[in-house]
């Protein structure tokens, strides 16, 4: 089981901030494919990965990063702090 978090418009499109996901995905990209296959709202949120960022256990990562040992995955748009 892995905790998957969504922020900003990703959270709004998917309709929830956090969920626990049972997955055998080896990489972030595979997890994204699993999620997209679930429901249209996921497919819409993940339609353009270039518009998204991912963090693994609260560290920025790439979409080809492995998920082994990861407890928390977060998806969000590019950050706009400051």
């Amino acid at each position: 089981m892995i905790d998957v978090l969504y922020f900003a418009w990703v959270r709004e499109r998917i309709g929830l901030p956090k969920e626990r996901v049972e997955t055998s995905a080896a990489t972030v990209a595979e997890l994204v494919e699993d999620l997209k296959a679930r429901e249209e709202r996921y497919a819409v949120a993940f339609a353009d990965l270039s518009a998204l960022r991912v963090a693994l256990d609260q560290e920025l990562a790439e979409f080809d990063a492995p998920l082994a040992g990861v407890r928390e995955v977060a998806f969000f748009p590019p950050m706009t702090g400051g």
């Binding site: 922020f7 900003a8 963090a55 969000f76 748009p77 590019p78 950050m79 706009t80 702090g81």
Partner: peptide, 23 residues
């Protein structure tokens, strides 16, 4: 760095609706 590497997202609420600020 904190503008584009710290996980904050701004949403603006105005007279013509709400919109996420684009990076």
């Amino acid at each position: 760095y904190l503008k584009s590497r710290a996980p904050f997202w701004k949403k603006e609420f105005g007279t013509d609706g709400a919109a996420w600020v684009a990076a």
